[in-house]
Simulated assay, not measured.
Amino acid sequence: MRYSFRLAEVVGHVPDPRRRPGTIKAICDYTGLDRHQVAALLKNEVKYIPLDALSKLCDYLIEKGFATAEELPGRLFAVEPEHFWELLARRRRLELCLGVRRGEPGDSLDDAWVVASDSVLLGELLNGVTSLGGTARHKREKEKVEGAPAEPSFDPHPEQLHQSLVFSPGQSSFADYVELAKQVYNGFCSAAGDKALICLGSNKSNPVVEILLAEAFGAVPFETQDGLATANKRHCPIFFRYRGHDPQTPSCCGGVQLSTSEKSDAPGIYYEKSDGTWDACTWNATKQDAAVVFYIHRESQGRLEMMLGGYSGRATRLLARMLARRGEEFWPPVYSGHGIQIGAFVVKFKLQSQSENDPHALLTDLAADSEIVRLAPDVIERRMQIAGEEDM
């Protein structure tokens, strides 16, 4: 069991170079600690902390009203997750965001609906969080056999569940669904305490996914990058190549061409490799499909952002089935550094001539051979927007 240091979460510090609240300077002025030590503490990058420094930090937090004496120093420490489902279950506040659609433009919001594939994925997600992917019961039984106390052991689970609904692209005007997506994302960011935002669907069905990926990689959301000279200049290392009938939403991670010099004629999900070239998990109506699992975990802030979605509704259902049976394969993260962990996975599905419109798809489990592609750590590293230290 490992512990993380949550000073950044307690003081509400966000290491964003666009917002410099003077947190480091304020702590240094009060405690007399070195600014590099404080910066490392805010990023959870120290291996130990002297008792004298811990005492000074506790005095600062009490004096400034960030915590009470009864809460300290315990509130500064948290258990780090050790597998995929624990990563979600240890969040105090879990927000689930889905895109909704309307049958007709004039339908009221009460008539908005969630597509079947997202509903299936939501169910498997909640099941995994509450049961730790089906391992919670086995863990308790093992502890009982090994002589643990008779009382059931504590299984981590969210204290608050919150659901957000946004319009899918094409279900309202561009300005309206973008504004609603920004409100949801900004609302999550402003919420205090340990939290997670889980977006179901791709950027084609959930516009908050667009904002999440743009923020992770320093891109401008809802702005196409199709006109770049080469694909390695793209901010996001994952690219959704649209089909002709998909909503042609301007996107930093989606479009119809990787770049002006590289062909990407086949629809599907593209991803960059270590050597700078791009590979693709292409979509085919009867044979192939793909999905993405992406998360960025800022342990020091107690903040997790995740997107789970298929290229198509069929792929989303396949991903739901895969999470139920093989969720732990999306751990560990592909990248760790600078106080963050990133998981970036593309899933290839190979089907046996199964159509997206097969009427039996809702009645039986879809079957497909699957392969999980882990993006290379250096692909993530060279794209990360690392926040610098605050000015004194």
Rank of each mutant, 00 (worst) to 15 (best):
A280V: 14
V293W: 00
P221C: 02
G310R: 05
D246L: 05
G268W: 00
E272L: 12
L228G: 03
G268D: 01
F294R: 02
L308Q: 09
K273F: 01
H245D: 14
I238K: 06
K233G: 15
A280D: 06
I238T: 07
C281S: 08
V292E: 09
V256K: 09
Y242C: 02
A266R: 13
D275I: 09
D275N: 15
K263I: 05
Q301F: 03
S264L: 04
N232E: 14
E272G: 05
C281R: 05
E262L: 04
D226C: 12
A229N: 00
P237G: 09
C281A: 07
V293G: 04
A231D: 03
K233Y: 15
E305S: 11
F239A: 12
M306A: 07
E272R: 13
S259W: 10
R241K: 13
R298M: 08
V293S: 05
P221G: 04
K273A: 12
P247K: 06
G244F: 08
E272K: 11
F240S: 07
K233C: 14
P267G: 05
H297C: 15
A290R: 03
F222C: 01
Y311H: 08
H297P: 09
R314C: 11
T282L: 04
E262G: 03
S261V: 00
I296W: 02
V256L: 12
Q225E: 15
A291P: 04
K233R: 15
F294P: 00
D279K: 13
R241T: 01
R317V: 07
G309Y: 02
R303D: 13
G302L: 05
T316Y: 04
C252R: 06
E299M: 13
F222H: 00
F294M: 01
K233I: 10
G276C: 13
G276Q: 14
D246Q: 10
D246H: 12
G227Y: 15
